[in-house]
């Protein structure tokens, strides 16, 4: 009986630890390695940045704020983490969404339009991120 109780407690602690560690995982961390490696076919294309900005305002800004500057219902997208993310990872998140956290898959936008949004997010004119408070 005591052994069963100990085993049960260990399993509960393990699940709690997994839950805590999972809470810190962002959508970008869940991207499969193969998807991360996909290159952006529109990288460095100024027209793609402009088109991506337009698409962002039309489809994404309602949750991620105009210009990607502030957090509304979705996370702010002007962070270093997003700007430095592999384009393939951003493309994968836009395509698949984060359904459990309320972001729908945006596969209804044709693939080139999703790449245009990625180009805007990684190469668009965005203000520098706000300084973080010292620990």
């Amino acid at each position: 009986m005591r052994n069963r109780l100990a085993a049960g407690t260990s399993i509960a602690i393990l699940f709690a630890a997994l839950a805590v560690s999972a809470a810190g995982i962002t959508a970008l961390d869940r991207v499969p390695p193969k998807a991360r490696l996909r290159p952006n076919p529109l990288e460095g294309n100024p027209a793609a940045v402009a088109a991506g900005a337009k698409l962002f305002e039309q489809h994404c800004a309602v949750c991620h704020a105009p210009g990607a500057k502030n957090r509304l219902r979705g996370p702010a997208l002007d962070s270093i983490q997003v700007r430095d993310a592999p384009p393939g990872a951003l493309f994968w998140v836009i395509t698949n969404g984060v359904v459990r956290r309320g972001m729908p898959p945006w596969s209804k936008l044709p693939e080139p339009q999703r790449w245009q949004i990625v180009t805007f997010l990684t190469g668009g004119e965005m203000p520098p991120p706000a300084p973080r408070p010292a620990p």
Binding site: P110, P112, Q113
Partner: peptide, 14 residues
């Protein structure tokens, strides 16, 4: 059209 044009437009093919 699969790519979006950079400008806001009514009659763009996309």
């Amino acid at each position: 059209a699969l790519e979006a044009s950079p400008r806001r437009c009514m009659f763009c093919r996309e």
